[in-house]
């Protein structure tokens, strides 16, 4: 199964594991759904509908205390299973079971966070090419973004496209994962392999930016 080719699967890459530390929350989009993706204090990963059941505040603006995600607006706290555990305005109140955040299936594989809107998130195994390089947004459709990597020279030479769909740029293996955020915005995650040195990684990071310029010029 190819990485970097438009494979049909039930999950989408929303971020690099490296970029979400314990007790942090971020916003993500999966198949058009606005999500809050967060890690509890024990490194457990959660993906929820990005909407507090109370007054609709985006939970991605919230904060993590212990193993709970709290909403920034009124501080309501939600357990890992999505159920509301605490309402600060009424400290003595046991919140009814009906107050719960909608949860999604999420896993980590190849150093990447994958979310499914069904109940069985899967990740792509990128083999040894699972060293995080960076995530970056392209203002263009997914297909244009993907193609741009193949069309952008690295140090003067176009990357080779392997049969697995992986690219080799300047001798460095690269996996490109794409999350179509909208028709005109794509979040790209780029992985390389662990043996690549810092200088080469920085060069690859700039090559990603060059690919973005190619893609966005084409989309304009």
């Amino acid at each position: 199964m190819g990485v970097g080719v438009g494979v049909r699967m039930n999950s989408v890459a929303v971020g690099l594991s490296r970029d979400l530390a314990p007790k942090r929350v971020m916003r993500a989009v999966a198949y058009g759904h606005d999500l809050a993706v967060w890690r509890d204090g024990e490194n457990g990963l959660h993906a929820w509908d990005n909407r507090c059941p109370h007054r609709g505040m985006r939970l991605s603006h919230g904060f993590v205390r212990g193993d709970r995600l709290a909403c920034l607006y009124h501080g309501w706290q939600y357990r890992k299973d999505g159920g509301c555990a605490y309402i600060p305005a009424h400290p003595g109140l046991e919140p009814p079971e009906t107050i719960r955040a909608q949860t999604y299936s999420v896993i980590e594989k190849s150093g990447v966070i994958w979310v499914s809107t069904g109940n069985d998130a899967q990740g792509v195994d990128t083999g040894p090419v699972s060293e995080p390089l960076r995530s970056l947004t392209f203002f263009c459709a997914e297909a244009i973004a993907r193609a741009a990597f193949e069309d952008t020279p690295f140090a003067g030479n176009l990357p080779q496209v392997e049969s697995t769909g992986r690219l080799v740029a300047g001798g460095h293996p690269v996996a490109v994962l794409a999350n179509p955020v909208t028709e005109s915005e794509t979040l790209i995650h780029v992985l390389t392999s662990a043996g690549v040195g810092i200088a080469a990684k920085k060069a690859l990071s700039r090559w990603c930016e060059a690919a973005r310029s190619v893609a966005e010029r084409q989309a304009a």
Binding site: G56, M57, R58, H61, Y73
Partner: peptide
Amino acid sequence: RSILENQKPTLLP
């Protein structure tokens, strides 16, 4: 303001 711009849906239910 930053709260108000992040409530969903935008309209008041």
